[in-house]
């Protein structure tokens, strides 16, 4: 190690000091609470070891919400990736007018989530929502977007996609800008079809960006809350009850903070494992972009 690197730890100080002071404490506190039977109302807490975890892992509700979360998470990340990638490619092809489009298409992403949820509710509400009202005008009987167990999942996935596709698009578009054009030209000269160019030249070069954006989205989609809460409240029944909605019910509705914290830790472990697997898989599939 070179001499000048020695003082490098000072650079960590502001950030990690702040994290330790502000974030580590609440985080450890939350993890600590997960070992207690702690009902916020009574203020008393009893140490029950892994009791909350055992409780949660043996109840059907957790597994049900886990399944729902996974369906919604993968559904929306898939939609976001496919649409976002298509948009990025389209923008890349367009050149001049791309800038205008990229600004307009990015707009949904900067809307405050609470507000975005409200906007989408005005679209999807049955009868008087914009979509229904329009379809009904033309005498088309629309499905029950938020009230039917299957459609509610679809609506929630589309809602998430509406907000986050722009992010995926932007990252991939930026990555395309950094693409080595000589590779593309070489492919063209070799007479490769567009599909082959995409598959064998563009995608491999984009792997780091793809991993980045999919990881980010998967991490966040598991915490996905505002939109579902406003649109369906987890309903109908439990059709759109994700782990986060369940955590909210436990922690903020029933004030069972210990159990809610345990659920948080479980979420974290599941997401971490999932991400690891996916990253490994993606890396392997393309023999790891540049690393």
């Amino acid at each position: 190690m070179v001499r000048w690197q020695r003082g490098l730890w000072l650079f960590f100080l502001p950030s990690f000091g702040l994290l330790a002071l502000v974030l580590l404490w609440p985080l450890s506190y939350a993890v600590y609470l997960s070992f207690f039977d702690y009902y916020l109302g009574s203020g008393e807490r009893t140490f029950i070891g892994l009791g909350n975890y055992v409780d949660l892992l043996t109840e059907a509700r957790l597994w049900n919400s886990m399944r729902t979360t996974i369906i919604i998470a993968f559904g929306s990340v898939a939609v976001e990736f496919l649409v976002g990638f298509a948009l990025a490619l389209a923008l890349y092809r367009l050149h001049g007018s791309a800038k205008v489009f990229s600004v307009l298409l990015f707009l949904p992403h900067i809307v405050t989530p609470v507000v975005a949820a409200l906007f989408l509710k005005w679209m999807l509400a049955s009868n008087w929502g914009f979509v229904d009202a329009t379809l009904l005008t033309f005498n088309i009987e629309p499905p029950d977007w938020l009230g039917d167990p299957v459609w509610a999942k679809v609506s929630v996935i589309l809602a998430d996609a509406w907000v986050f596709t722009p992010l995926v698009m932007m990252v991939l578009y930026a990555a395309l800008q950094g693409l080595d054009t000589s590779l593309l030209e070489a492919a063209q000269i070799d007479g490769a079809s567009s599909w082959n160019t995409l598959r064998h030249v563009i995608v491999p070069a984009l792997i780091p960006a793809i991993i980045f954006v999919i990881s980010i989205r998967l991490m966040d989609v598991f915490r996905f809350f505002d939109l579902i809460y406003v649109l369906t409240g987890g309903g109908p029944g439990t059709a759109t009850e994700t782990i986060t909605i369940y955590t909210y019910q436990l922690g903020f509705r029933m004030l069972e903070v210990g159990k809610a914290s345990a659920l948080g830790v479980i979420t974290l472990i599941v997401v971490a494992m999932l991400l690891l697997t996916i990253n490994r898989g993606l890396n392997k599939a393309y023999r790891g972009g540049d690393r």
């Binding site: 509400a125 629309p142 938020l146 309903g235």
Partner: peptide
């Protein structure tokens, strides 16, 4: 009930 009553 109106369509969507479970979200009403």
């Amino acid at each position: 009930a109106p369509r969507g009553f479970t979200a009403h």
